[in-house]
Amino acid sequence: MAGMVLADFGAEVVRIDRPDSNGSVTPDVLARGKRSIAVDPKTPSGYKVVLKLVEQADVLIDPFRPGVMERLKLGPEVFLGNSFSNPKGANEKLIYARLAGFSRTGGCSFMKRPHKDMAGHDLNYLAVSGVLSMFPGEGKPEFPLNLLADFGGGGLVCVLGILLGLIDRSRSGLGQVVNTDMVTGLRYLATWPLLLSHLRLPVFGDTRATGLLDGGCPFYNIYTCADGQWVSVGCLEPQFFRLFVEHFLKALPQDLAIDGWRLTADNQHDRDSWPRMKKLLEKGFQLRPRDYWTEVFHG
């Protein structure tokens, strides 16, 4: 993702692949705008090619777990130098961007155990960050594909770090290591909901899926239509809720009710009525197909 975003905005991006046994390279569905070269850096000739490429580059993106690039003799000290074994680096203007799943320091204030050498996936990073527990779902949190940690907290935060590193280089003339990880990046993206949850504001309920934005609110939710398709309803502001109720009720039988309870615009912030409101909305949306509802609200 990070390389694709940079390529989309004009960067020349080269992906380095290692050929497999039949000579093909790893498929990259995020290859838009990238060139690629198949090289095995574990061979002497392949290592020289990779070294030459990075010596001429502005940015290197390291997507591996800690220690992989060092074992390949392509760690930051090779290019940026250090004060001990290699005082002069091969490319001291290089922005060496490292993107891992867990923090490279082994842990942080919200991690009770070190994770830096562990493999993981988006779902694991969501869980360790604490954000997963805030998601809605019946009986357990449900997760939104692999968008938040992999691409949001990972790839996009990495791009931000690269750009800031390039800005700093324009002043100092020197490159640097940019460390990003998906757990920390996700926590950063989730600053707003995490703080609101900690302060116990009504945006998030005292328990999961009982607040305005965590699946508990009937007028900020998803409903199934008669054809099995879905509609999203998001009318938090009173004037928009009133307009929604007006159009919704006009499109349905006048006697639609739940145990004698009927929906009005005045019910919006009566939380005791939310369970009945949700049932009524579910019942109503299931009476018509999605295209019908599209015409009701957009026609």
Rank of each mutant, 00 (worst) to 15 (best):
V296D: 01
I37C: 02
Q254Y: 08
G260S: 12
Q229W: 12
D28P: 09
V131K: 04
K48W: 08
D255T: 15
D117Q: 13
L195S: 08
M277Y: 01
V29K: 02
G107K: 03
R71C: 02
G152M: 01
S232E: 13
I167Q: 12
G173Y: 04
G23H: 10
P114C: 09
N146K: 10
P136F: 10
L164P: 11
R98M: 14
D266M: 06
G101V: 11
S85K: 12
L252E: 07
E77S: 14
D206T: 02
R104Y: 06
G260E: 06
D214S: 04
C217R: 04
P141E: 14
P144Y: 14
D20Q: 09
K279G: 06
G120T: 07
C108K: 03
N22R: 14
L163A: 02
A257P: 06
M118C: 15
H247L: 11
S172D: 07
D255N: 12
S83V: 13
V178C: 07
K42F: 15
A119P: 13
G299F: 11
S24P: 00
M111G: 11
L249R: 07
R187F: 00
C235R: 02
S170N: 04
A251P: 10
L99I: 13
D255E: 13
D214Q: 02
I222C: 02
V183T: 14
D181P: 01
G81Y: 05
A11L: 10
Y125C: 05
G3D: 01
L148E: 00
F248D: 01
V68R: 01
D17G: 07
T184Q: 09
S109D: 15
L132T: 01
E142N: 15
G107H: 01
P19Y: 05
T26G: 02
I162F: 03
W293N: 03
K93Q: 08
K116H: 11
K116L: 02
C235P: 09
R98G: 08
D62V: 05
A11W: 11
E282Q: 08
D259N: 14
Q229P: 07
F219D: 00
G234S: 14
Y220W: 01
R35M: 04
S103M: 09
V25H: 03
A7R: 10
S232M: 14
Y47V: 14
L196A: 07
E77G: 10
A38D: 09
P87C: 00
L287M: 15
E282T: 05
Q286P: 08
L72V: 00
V296K: 02
L263C: 09
I95R: 00
N86E: 07
I162M: 01
I162K: 04
G137S: 04
Y188C: 15
H247F: 05
F64S: 05
K34E: 03
K48M: 12
D28N: 15
M1N: 07
R32W: 08
F241R: 01
A31G: 12
L51N: 13
R169H: 06
G153C: 03
D291H: 15
G155Q: 05
W274F: 05
D272H: 09
F204T: 00
A190H: 06
G23D: 09
L166Q: 10
P289I: 10
P144R: 15
V231W: 14
P141S: 11
D40C: 06
D227S: 07
M134V: 00
L145R: 15
H121Y: 15
R35N: 07
D214M: 01
L160C: 05
L263I: 10
P44W: 11
